[in-house]
Computed example of a mutant assay.
Amino acid sequence: MQLDPQFILTAFLDLFQALPMTLLITAVSLIGGFIIAVPAALVRINRVPVLSQIASAYVTVIRGTPMLMHLFLIYYGLPILIDSVSRKLNLGFTSVSIPIVYFVFVAFSLTAGAYMTEVIRAGIQAVDRGQVEAAYSVGMTPVQTFKRIVLPQALAVSLLNLSSEVIGMLHGTTLAFTVSITEINGRANIVASTNWKFFEAYIAAALMFWGLTVLIERVTARIEKKINTFNRGGVA
């Protein structure tokens, strides 16, 4: 067997068909994860009775089990729950009508949420308590203080860890092919199956993921530079 550089280029160009799906899964999962992570981090920090224990259990279970397992549990388990509720309420609705990608969104959002909870929790705890007290002293409500003082600084502190979560979720989208979603990895399999040039197809997929990863790292570095410039009192 000989390496076919020309097919690597052919496969690389073909993989662009699957790029939108990969980016969509990544974006939706991260947004969903962030929506889960912020309240989960807050109830853990404030040790809200019952909710704190639930959030801790959620983080421990998700972080302690593989991402592929989350996908399979949601893919096979959530339809059972949906169909059961639909039958009891006589809704006449079945899970068959739900696009498979929605189950991927749910599974990956739960995964991202658990990891981002710990990142955001650490970021919030890193914010100087004196700034919070100063905000209260000028009449800010707890919600205003969190939105204007705490969360922006927590995200800035957590920037590098959050970028790692973005990259991790981008790479994790390759698991979606196990439930018939055609993302970059899935498209590479399809392209390779036409003439059994799997090595070249996977090289093309690896190059695409590497390029996206480098782009994320560059964007993160630029944002970090602007934040550091702003913190020093300069012009971002």
Rank of each mutant, 00 (worst) to 15 (best):
Y76M: 11
A112D: 06
I31R: 08
R44D: 00
F103Q: 02
L13C: 11
Q17E: 14
I80Q: 15
M69W: 11
M116V: 11
L73W: 13
A11L: 01
G123D: 06
A107C: 13
I124H: 02
V48G: 05
M67H: 12
L73T: 08
V50H: 08
T65V: 09
V43T: 14
I80W: 07
A41M: 02
G32A: 08
V101P: 05
Y75M: 09
M116D: 02
S84V: 06
R44C: 00
I25V: 11
A55T: 08
A18L: 03
V104R: 00
Y115L: 04
I45W: 02
N46I: 03
S29C: 08
V61I: 15
D128W: 03
V43F: 04
S97L: 15
V38M: 02
L24D: 09
I45D: 07
A40R: 07
V61G: 00
Q17S: 15
P49S: 14
I31W: 12
G123I: 02
G113T: 08
V96A: 13
V132H: 06
Y58G: 13
A114Q: 04
L89W: 14
S97K: 12
V50K: 06
V48N: 07
A122C: 11
S95G: 04
P99Q: 12
M116F: 01
V50R: 01
P49A: 12
I100D: 15
A27I: 06
D83G: 00
Y115C: 07
I124Y: 05
Y102F: 13
I36W: 06
R44V: 07
P66L: 03
R47V: 02
V48P: 00
A11G: 07
G123Q: 05
K88M: 15
S84I: 02
M116N: 04
G113N: 09
L23V: 14
I82V: 15
A37F: 09
T94W: 04
V61L: 08
S109K: 03
P99H: 13
Y76D: 11
I31Q: 14
V119F: 10
M67T: 09
G92F: 06
M116H: 00
Q53R: 14
M69T: 12
I98R: 10
G77V: 05
G130W: 10
R129I: 05
T60E: 15
L24R: 13
L110K: 01
P79T: 05
S56L: 03
M67F: 15
Y76C: 09
R44H: 04
Y58R: 09
I25D: 12
F103H: 05
L81V: 15
D83W: 05
I35W: 03
L42F: 04
V106I: 15
T117V: 10
I54E: 04
Y58D: 13
I54P: 03
L30W: 08
M116A: 12
I124F: 03
A107G: 09
L9S: 06
A114L: 11
A107W: 05
A55D: 10
L13T: 09
A37N: 11
V127A: 10
S52Y: 01
Y115R: 06
P20N: 03
L23P: 03
T26M: 14
T10A: 13
V43H: 04
G32Q: 08
N46G: 04
Q53M: 10
T94E: 13
L89T: 15
S109C: 07
Q53I: 12
A27N: 05
V127D: 08
P79Q: 01
S86W: 04
Y76R: 00
N90L: 09
